[in-house]
Design a protein around this nucleic acid. Structure first.
Lengths: 233, 233
DNA sequence: GAGTGGTCTAGACCACTGT
DNA sequence: CAGTGGTCTAGACCACTCC
């Protein structure tokens, strides 16, 4: 007994985090094995294993069989971004969600969008452009291409009341996707719709999703001036 | 036996994901209990529990004692951003990291920065401004305030060769922090240093970190034009 | 109160990898 | 080859919460 009270695997994790934060275990250093820690802290090895896997997931230690567990030299902090449906994001902040469909048409997407959809050249896809509002103010402009050969049902959805964003979540399951965050100067049209001066800096999110290697949709979300995306480490 | 081969808890997780993706289990629906699933898949309840916790962490199901496990109605996708030390980020992409210290001085921080540091009014803090380069090209401008009462050792670090970013990782452990991502128009000075037209849109990251409620540092990272931050879902 | 998930345990075997 | 983490198991008890 060390006199310390450890409360479950989260308690073990916190103790490990404390030893790293206080410098008791320094970067690059080998920490005791699971069995030894379990004995020291008075719990089963399984519990220590669970705790250390959590610390490893956070990037604070590296674990290798036979080599043991080492404190990371260059901890790679991980920030988890929650990506909810836009309506929910707005409502979660206590605001009223508004929605206005701007365009819905079948057309040949530009090369960049076609590539992200994995569609054939000159194949037509469904284009949906819409504005989301929070308490009546422009919030984000959604410009989206949908691969109708992968999601045929989309051809008969009208998107005038339910956004493509939300419709897809409920009707087009996906197995993976990628996201890019960047900044862009507002085009004249974007400045007109979103408000703010022409060429003002806008926060842009580009998402592609696919299901089993088949492209489903590619969206470009342009947020109104002043938007910040927040999270914690 | 169902004739299905399940390979460990990750196999169970994949099977659960498959059933959600294919719509076999629909949004809002109650899925079988752990014991029943364990029996169906031919493994121990512990294994099913491990798998379902992983699926829950991804936001695809909600679990409540007594109520059981339900498929989420509005799955909140989570994107994990890796936040490495800037030098490592540049070197990981195969480029050569360059570094130029622009300013290092003790001064009274502006109100916004002071608030993020949790410092007293009119208290002085250490200001460090530096440019990081990738293969000789401007990459990101780092503008940072350090709370010297929380990290006294910083006062004697010179930051001319090792960036404050990296020095702090090794010398000032922290327990938490927050990050904000946004877009901003380049100031004249920023355009001059980073290249690109005046007022071009720049990607901005603002970080604050603290240790046990004591503010450590507040940094504003302004990336060169065209920067994109990528991740997967 | 009863049912479900959350966690702990002790033991076992496997998988990887440094020496 | 040997040491360490990765995982599975069966059983147990606890904690929460819906009815």
């Amino acid at each position: 007994m060390t006199g310390k009270r450890i409360n479950g695997w989260q308690g073990v994790r916190d103790e490990v985090l404390r030893r790293i934060q206080t410098g008791q275990w320094k970067p690059g250093e080998l920490i005791p094995g699971e069995l030894q820690l379990a004995h020291e802290l008075g719990c089963a090895r399984t519990t220590v294993n669970r705790a250390l896997q959590d610390v490893s997931d956070r990037g604070l230690v590296h674990r290798r069989r036979k080599a043991g567990t080492h404190v990371a030299r260059h901890p790679v902090r991980k920030a988890v971004l929650n990506i909810p449906v836009i309506r929910i994001e707005i409502e979660a902040s206590g605001q009223k969600h508004g929605y206005r469909l701007i365009d819905r048409s079948l057309a040949v997407p530009p090369a960049a969008a076609a590539a992200r959809l994995g569609a054939k050249k000159r194949a037509r896809a469904l284009h949906v452009s819409a504005l989301h509002l929070a308490d009546g103010e422009a919030y984000v402009l959604e410009d989206r291409w949908i691969n109708t050969s992968a999601v045929p049902a989309a051809a008969s959805a009208d998107f005038s009341r339910l956004s493509a964003n939300e419709w897809l979540v409920e009707n087009a399951p996906f197995s993976g996707g990628d996201i890019a965050f960047s900044a862009a100067n507002a085009s004249a049209a974007e400045a007109e719709i979103l408000g703010g001066a022409p060429a003002s800096a806008l926060f842009v999110v580009e998402r592609s999703t696919w299901n089993d290697k088949t492209g489903i949709t590619a969206a470009r979300l342009v947020f109104a001036p002043g938007y910040k995306m927040l999270t914690v480490i």
